[in-house]
Design a protein around this nucleic acid. Structure first.
Length: 124
RNA sequence: GGAGUUGGCUAGACAGUCGCUCGGGUCGCAAGACCCGGGAGGAAAGUCCGGGCUCCAUAGGGUAGAGCGCCAGGUAACGCCUGGGGGGCGAGAGCCCACGGAAAGUGCAACAGAGAAUAAACCGCCGAAGCGAAGACCCCGGUCGACGCUGGUAAGGGUGAAACGGUGCGGUAAGAGCGCACCGCGGUCCUGGUAACAGGAACGGCAUGGCAAACCCCGCUCGGAGCAAGGCCAAAUAGGGGAACUAGUGGACAGAUUCGUCUGAUCCACGCCGCACGACCCGUGUGUGUUCCCGGGUAGGCUGCUUGAGGUGUCCGGCGACGGGCAUCCCAGAGGAAUGACUGUCCACGACAGAACCCGGCUUAUCGGCCAACUCCCACC
């Protein structure tokens, strides 16, 4: 069976066009560590995209570390999430932040983004 | 034991749970599941050199430009490495050096200083020579002559990063390679060394100050771009080429021409037709050949992509860098980008830091730990 906490390629965003779609049409949430854009998708499960830039957080080791942390938080939250595309973008605050702060921030932002998207759905 | 030098190794460990990725296997139509194995670095970094590999260019030669620069080796190659020479630093082990040419030419040297490259008299030293001269002496027209001037002088002081060989003796008015000895320097010869170079001999009285990371000269090397290289497959939309079929009228234009015309979906107007304005008519707007084939090519996908100047062990050659033989191993290959997260235990409480086509170097960053060789000091036998 597929592990409920797995994170396979189909749980990620791959193409540039998918990212653009979320940036343009998605709802945006954020604090000084990260920003999350979220948008409905048609896949029946949540997907994750990450944009962790050199400009915002610095060197490669730090960027890899943040990506892994984001992915872990998403992976653990994933079974409870609706079918949305989430794109997490790093902000300069993440450069120096501690691990507990980062995890707390991400959990809060994912919940917030989910709430906003769900609430915004047309009540047809 | 302490202080130090050089070279090398290492870069938290173990267990469990949840995940990611590649390879192999089993099952499955498939999606996938399970099992086994692999999964960042010594710098993966900076992108500073050198190669491989691709594509483009290329007869040969020259110029420009760039780089390199003691000698000999090593290497695919190098600006790297090894050994050697020379110079400098250190008590020593050792460390450091862009270390070719300054009698080819041009140029530069702040401040200080008299003078900075056809040397130069500020203080000083001299008073031999020439001129002047207070004065002294005496045999009364001679001798001496402080001092001054013309001058001589590179010993000494002082300035400077650097002052036109150094030390000593002789010499001299004082001095000076003016002479001599030793040292340095120069070309010549001899000896050793593959060479850089070293040692020696007689000769030369000293010529050639420094800067070439100033221009420059000499010698050697160098085609350009880079995996977003390059190769393959290939939607949708627009556009290109061709064929068949269909279609009215007039004009323009183009081509052909026997100058009568003929041909043409090249363009324009009208018409026809489709669509929109809720339907129909008018009207308005807008669109327009149809089908098939071919080639280029975008998104996207595949490939290049990891077996290599490869690792380990051992033997042989070499002072060494390194080379050769044999055996053995396969040891990351992602792609909006894997190599992670959590829990527990332990300790010396963990630095710098993340592969992106691949190698060889250099440079820079780095908490520590370990090993070996060597040097100096102290203590003991």
């Amino acid at each position: 069976m597929t592990g409920t906490h797995s994170f396979r390629p189909h749980h990620r965003l791959h193409a540039g066009a998918e990212f653009d779609r979320v940036y343009r049409q998605g709802r945006r949430t954020g604090d000084n560590l990260f920003a999350i854009n979220a948008l409905d998708n048609a896949y029946g499960h949540a997907r994750l995209g990450m944009s962790v830039s050199y400009r915002s957080v610095g060197k490669a080791v730090r960027r890899n570390y943040l990506r892994r942390l984001i992915r872990e938080v998403f992976r653990h939250a994933q079974p409870a999430l609706p079918a949305l595309d989430y794109v997490v973008t790093s902000r300069p605050g993440a450069r120096e932040a501690s691990e507990p702060d980062i995890v707390r921030s991400l959990e809060r932002l994912i919940a917030e983004a989910t709430r906003r998207c769900t609430a915004a759905r047309p009540t047809s």
